[in-house]
């Protein structure tokens, strides 16, 4: 499938408002081309997937979008603004949030504080206000806390708000991480393997959750996922990477029928299975 046709298919479904456009994105680690000439376009409201075998460079793409890595070359435009090479916190403040492959919560803090930290850029009071605990501090802190609590309620975590994050069960930790990412009300959410380590029932619940947050928060979502059930079940459009390059794009049906993808990734129908035994990398 050529780039051209895929872009056309893409445009026919979009409402025309492009939120993210990546062109010619390349990242070298020493001599290794982790990502080579990657391109991607997302329209407002899309729910797209990024798949590929391990080491294909998917997370590196995420890391470049969120500013963890500075691209070797290429451009990333978010709402028309060039963001390649900006610091991660600035990118987040512009409206891109993410979750991590291996959950990265502030594990010794309470559930509430995890969410409140995400509100920090919008705290509404200065450091001096904080040190004097003046009325502006008190007012804004109250508002901030109430918002965080309401937010936790949306994710049905309000009863857990005073628990230490690391004591939550795995599924709730995933949910909290998504809640935390959404707290600052981003426009674009990047999910890095949200279903990792989940059983089929949990994955189904997760898919519902993703659909829900997309509607509720008017989000554009890009997700990396290995569980084919999830990817094929919720993504409207999929980009496939292998060895740092895009090898295919299309709707789930097109991807499943694409011989190159099957060859590189799905294998003889057992890729999803083999992925289950994928060694979890811990940091």
């Amino acid at each position: 499938m050529s780039e051209q046709t895929s872009t056309q298919t893409r445009q026919s479904r979009s409402n025309g408002q492009e939120i993210l456009r990546i062109e010619g994105l390349t990242k070298l680690f020493g001599g290794l081309k982790a990502v080579n000439n990657f391109s991607l376009s997302l329209n407002k409201g899309d729910l797209n997937g990024l798949i590929g075998p391990n080491g294909a460079g998917k997370t590196t793409v995420f890391n470049m979008i969120t500013g963890v890595y500075v691209p070797t070359s290429g451009s990333i435009r978010f709402n028309g603004q060039e963001i390649a090479g900006l610091e991660p916190h600035k990118i987040n403040q512009m409206g891109i949030a993410r979750t991590f492959q291996n959950i990265r919560l502030f594990s010794n803090l309470t559930v509430l504080d995890n969410v409140r930290i995400a509100y920090h850029p919008h705290a509404g009071y200065s450091l001096t206000d904080a040190i004097f605990h003046n009325s502006r501090y008190k007012e804004n802190e109250r508002i901030l806390t109430e918002r965080a609590q309401e937010f936790l309620a949306v994710f049905n975590l309000q009863d857990r708000q005073h628990e230490i994050a690391k004591n939550l069960p795995y599924g709730e930790q995933r949910r909290l991480e998504i809640a935390r990412a959404l707290a600052a009300e981003p426009k674009l959410l990047l999910l890095d393997e949200p279903a990792a380590g989940m059983n089929p029932a949990e994955s189904v619940a997760l898919m519902d959750l993703i659909h829900f947050i997309r509607e509720r928060f008017d989000l554009t979502i890009l997700l990396i996922e290995h569980q084919m059930r999830v990817v094929m079940g919720i993504c409207e459009y999929i980009t496939v990477m292998d060895f740092g390059e895009v090898i295919a794009r299309g709707t789930p049906a097109e991807i499943q029928a694409n011989p190159r993808v099957v060859e590189a990734y799905l294998g003889p129908g057992s890729a999803a299975l083999s992925e289950k035994f994928r060694r979890k990398r811990t940091l």
């Binding site: 969120t66 500013g67 963890v68 610091e87 991660p88 916190h89 987040n92 403040q93 949030a97 993410r98 991590f100 990265r104 919560l105 502030f106 594990s107 010794n108 803090l109 504080d113 409140r116 930290i117 995400a118 920090h120 850029p121 935390r180 990412a181 600052a184």
Partner: peptide, 17 residues
């Protein structure tokens, strides 16, 4: 809380703005 988040996880803190 921002100060403590740096101790907890620098990468996550950055990603939270």
């Amino acid at each position: 809380r921002a100060i403590i988040s740096v101790r907890e996880d620098e990468i996550a803190a950055k990603a939270m703005g």
